[in-house]
């Protein structure tokens, strides 16, 4: 890559995230200059929404990048966190925690998502020892994950009902900057989400665990030959998946204040779109894709009306996946050669 050699002396600096931040700031400045406050406000809410998409998209891209597995339970893990948190809070189990009950409830929700993700691992990858060596082999874990989607969703419907619920948000604080209203929890979630992704990138790049994950991504067979304990590393991917989906759901719940058994579907499809735009298996691609989809969504609602969102997002996606399967940014993926 010529870009890499040009910035050789700055190699230690994380180039991609900085470029991304600059691009976002420039876009907002242009928006304020050209379209005024309304557009800028739309862009800010788009970015906040995008930070949720981004976190879920990273969960998707991790399982695809490392395991070549399109995990359809991720939207359900997202939903589980929100609904379980609401469930334990509304039943009054957490009255002991006083004013911090909401936080404890969300942490329990995240823990449930992680446990559920590990159950999925137990029944999908643990049994996938036999290779069929044919074209539809990759469908087996995908179909299992669709089965788990049904199980989790309907268990929640049985236990907690099908109604959308109000999650009591304990604080409301808005920040006023440049004449824009920025919700403090929204800002916090954007920063938290970016922090998590940055940590994840660091882990993938610099640690022993990260190297093991990337080796599995290249080839599970080579990984075992090199002494990587694949059976012990694979659950890590599922723990991270549960954690990312759970954290995204917690941020969503705090920001928007409501939960429902169907909250995962909308987020899930947008996160898949974000992942595709960013390139499958690329963590920073998923970040950029998430923010882009969030922006595209709020702006297309503003300009074209709500019912065009689905067509615009998926039409764009179809074109991208066919013409540029490596994503819009061509960022290096965790696992290459998965085309």
């Amino acid at each position: 890559m010529s870009e890499a050699s040009a910035t050789a002396s700055f190699r230690s600096l994380p180039v991609r995230p900085i470029l991304l931040a600059i691009a976002v700031l420039v876009a907002i400045a242009v928006a304020i200059f050209a379209g005024g406050k309304v557009i800028a406000q739309q862009m800010v809410s788009g970015l906040m929404l995008g930070s949720i998409y981004m976190t879920v998209a990273v969960a998707f891209t991790l399982t695809i990048g490392v395991l070549n597995f399109l995990n359809f339970t991720i939207p359900t893990l997202f939903m589980l966190t929100g609904m379980v948190a609401w469930g334990v809070l509304s039943r009054g189990y957490l009255s002991v925690a006083g004013g911090w009950g909401w936080l404890l409830a969300l942490l329990i929700g995240i823990a449930v998502a992680v446990v559920a993700s590990l159950i999925v691992e137990r029944f999908t990858f643990r049994y996938l020892k036999t290779r069929h060596g044919d074209a539809t082999e990759h469908a087996i874990p995908l179909v299992s994950s669709l089965g788990f989607l049904l199980i989790f969703e309907h268990l929640v419907l049985i236990a907690l009902g099908s109604e959308a619920q109000r999650f009591p948000v304990p604080f409301k604080a808005d920040l006023y900057a440049f004449g824009l209203v920025i919700g403090l929890p929204q800002l916090a979630s954007l920063l938290l989400a970016l922090g998590i992704v940055a940590t994840l990138t660091y882990v993938l790049k610099r640690t022993r665990m990260g190297r093991a994950l990337r080796t599995i991504a290249e080839s599970p067979d080579t990984a075992s030959l090199l002494g990587v304990d694949v059976a012990r590393i694979v659950p890590v991917v599922f723990i991270l998946t549960g954690l990312l989906s759970g954290v995204a759901a917690a941020l969503f719940t705090v920001n928007y204040g409501d939960v429902s058994p169907f909250m995962g579907e909308h987020i899930g499809t947008k996160a898949i779109a974000a992942m595709v735009l960013g390139g499958l298996g690329s963590v920073w691609g998923a970040v950029a894709g998430g923010l882009l989809v969030g922006l595209a969504e709020t702006l297309s609602i503003h300009f074209l009306g709500g019912d065009s969102v689905q067509m615009v997002v998926w039409g764009l996606l179809l074109v991208v996946i066919i013409l540029r399967p490596q994503g819009l940014f061509g960022a290096s993926a965790i696992g290459k050669a998965k085309l």
Partner: peptide, 11 residues
């Protein structure tokens, strides 16, 4: 092919 085809047809 593979996961990409699943996603393309889904889209």
């Amino acid at each position: 092919r593979g996961v990409y085809m699943v996603l393309a047809t889904f889209a």
